[in-house]
Design a protein around this nucleic acid. Structure first.
Lengths: 114, 114
DNA sequence: TCAATACGCAACCACTGGTTGCATGAAATT
DNA sequence: AATTTCATGCAACCAGTGGTTGCGTATTGA
């Protein structure tokens, strides 16, 4: 099994952006949020957040429902769980390869220094 | 502890690119490689690979040493282990939050469908 | 009714992943 | 020794994207 499958690429690129990660963070904390409410807790404009919510919505990690004059976004738990699983999968694959080359011992020690 | 710390962003952006992930993959498999040798196993040009190796080198995930007319790159095991650890950390943080909202049960089942 | 607020669209800028083209330097061949 | 080959590096260029500002529109509430 190859670590970097083409299927996961959109998911990765969605999760790969720091602003989008923080967005998911906020949505997990607050259960729901609009572009403007979220933008107030981030160092970017409302429009930037709106674009990000757009790509997250397109990938399915988030779902937005119009509520009057505002559009409320929520995390799609199943999709995020799926994403987390893929994260873990890539990580463990690399980990396994590092371990297989038997240089993992010192590597872990150095990695624990931060 | 916040999931998306500013410190990790360069590491994430390095790992976030699909081509760079595949590059790391290849380097883990073959122990070492040059821009040209790696580009032959990827659907991108040698120059693109060279640029990617440049950013991976700058972040420290990879290290290139000149050997005659070619420049041989190897993975930095410690750094990659560190990166994998951060991957896992973000994943488990999200996982914990999903779990804490107690909707995790069905989410996992749906996620297992692929 | 009218002001405030939340959204969407469009134009614009900077950066980045990708390309092609060319120049340079080391290796190998004759 | 001279030449050809091969790997690298640099520069220009293009497309996509994260970010901004500006404006128009619709819903809410005074």
């Amino acid at each position: 099994m190859t670590v970097a499958g083409a299927v996961d690429d959109d998911l990765w690129s969605a999760i790969g952006d720091p602003t989008r990660r923080r967005l998911l963070d906020l949505l997990l904390l607050e259960e729901a949020g609009t572009a403007t409410s979220l933008s107030q807790q981030l160092p970017v404009t409302r429009q930037a957040v709106a674009k990000h919510l757009g790509v997250l919505d397109r990938v399915g990690l988030v779902h937005g429902t119009p509520a009057g004059r505002e559009k409320r976004y929520r995390v799609d738990d199943a999709q995020l769980a799926r994403a987390v699983a893929q994260l873990a999968s890539v990580g463990s694959a690399w980990d396994a390869r590092l371990r297989r080359i038997k240089r993992i011992a010192e590597a872990i020690q150095v990695a624990r220094q931060d």
